[in-house]
Design a protein around this nucleic acid. Sequence first.
DNA 1: CCCGCGGGGGCTGCATGCAATGCATACCGT
DNA 2: ACGGTATGCATTGCATGCAGCCCCCGCGGG
Lengths: 219, 219
Amino acid sequence: MQCIPCTRYAGGMQQTDAAHARLRELIVGGAYAPGERLTETEVAGVLAMSRTPVREALRGLEADGLVRSADGRGVVVTALDAAALRDTYRVRAALEALTAELAAERQAAGRIAPAELTALEADTALTEEATAAGRFAEAVTYNRRFHSRIAALSANAPAQAVLERLWDQIVVSTRASLDPPHRPALVNGQHRDLLAAITEGRAADAAGIARRHVLDTCG
Amino acid sequence: MQCIPCTRYAGGMQQTDAAHARLRELIVGGAYAPGERLTETEVAGVLAMSRTPVREALRGLEADGLVRSADGRGVVVTALDAAALRDTYRVRAALEALTAELAAERQAAGRIAPAELTALEADTALTEEATAAGRFAEAVTYNRRFHSRIAALSANAPAQAVLERLWDQIVVSTRASLDPPHRPALVNGQHRDLLAAITEGRAADAAGIARRHVLDTCG
DNA sequence: CCCGCGGGGGCTGCATGCAATGCATACCGT
DNA sequence: ACGGTATGCATTGCATGCAGCCCCCGCGGG
């Protein structure tokens, strides 16, 4: 269960937040399949808390697009159909283009620490290794980290937040078909290209490569 | 109090949804100023319901980015500073470019009813009229409707949803300074250009114009 | 006069009770 | 045997009670 960049796991961590985080992990991790139904009562039992925080957590997941309300009958894990998935990929492509562009601009302006780029390179290498070794689950994790890191380098919080949510939704709805990565060589090559464009501060190139990359992985 | 395209005001409308919708109107409408503090108890009193639905509504508004949790002391209406506002505008620019591009593509494919384009033209004209007559609040309303309509024409639900949220946030944080529209002539001219690009199915042009338009209105 | 400290109040967070709703099922009449 | 209806159950939505926390204010000591 890849512990995704859990935003602010520190501080409050009330039961509602705990329930939200836990359920998110379960859904994104595939423990609950798309289409599966969750009732507050049942979840409350599983998480050993009362229905109130569970209820709020479910509403939060609904706002995240991970579940849909079943109109008074609990919630259902969101299953994006092909069309919705394509729409989502398009939004992601637009935003990854933006974050890549911004990251490249910041690099050109000397506002990015070299260690950040090194880490990015490391993720690229790890993704390639895992792919080559057939450890696909691991590759997916590194892949996501690569993209998340670029989003972080853009220093654009709203874009970052939206992208995280989109990524979650995509993971859930493509889990069934994602195990064999589509074209590993293409993907990894594009990662290299993108990394190079950012490193060299070529903003427009970075944007174009990122967009193309996302749309290529789409279907 | 511009009655924004209230999504699905029909059907369920439980107290939680009512509270969410009502509070959103109040915040976006400016009745609650950025930085203002809201407590569940107080809101529950004002809306004449118990704290439970209010509590959920506040969480929903937080997910919408309209309020921020004051860590146990209620919530505070979000006030975006200049940097955050610029980041938000950049995300909006990327997404408006996407929706304009998609709308133009759909038009080129003959998938858009002429009446839709007529309505778009009408909004443009109304915006111009209101601007010329100095009725700025009205102009803002038509302006938003113009952009929302294009988003709808893109037939991309995720993009549409994100854009609505961004727009709300921007309205709240720019209300103080928005009353005098920045460069009316420029804005209206860009609307015409965008409308033309979409009508003629020039997708790439539409994307570029939309992006430029949003970034120009930014600051 | 300033600083530390303790009590009180307000507010949240959670649990639980209650009523309403919608569905499934079983029963009864034909 | 079949259709319609009534009943029971599962489950939500909301209200309220209770405990904990934090902040503020006032008081006493230095």
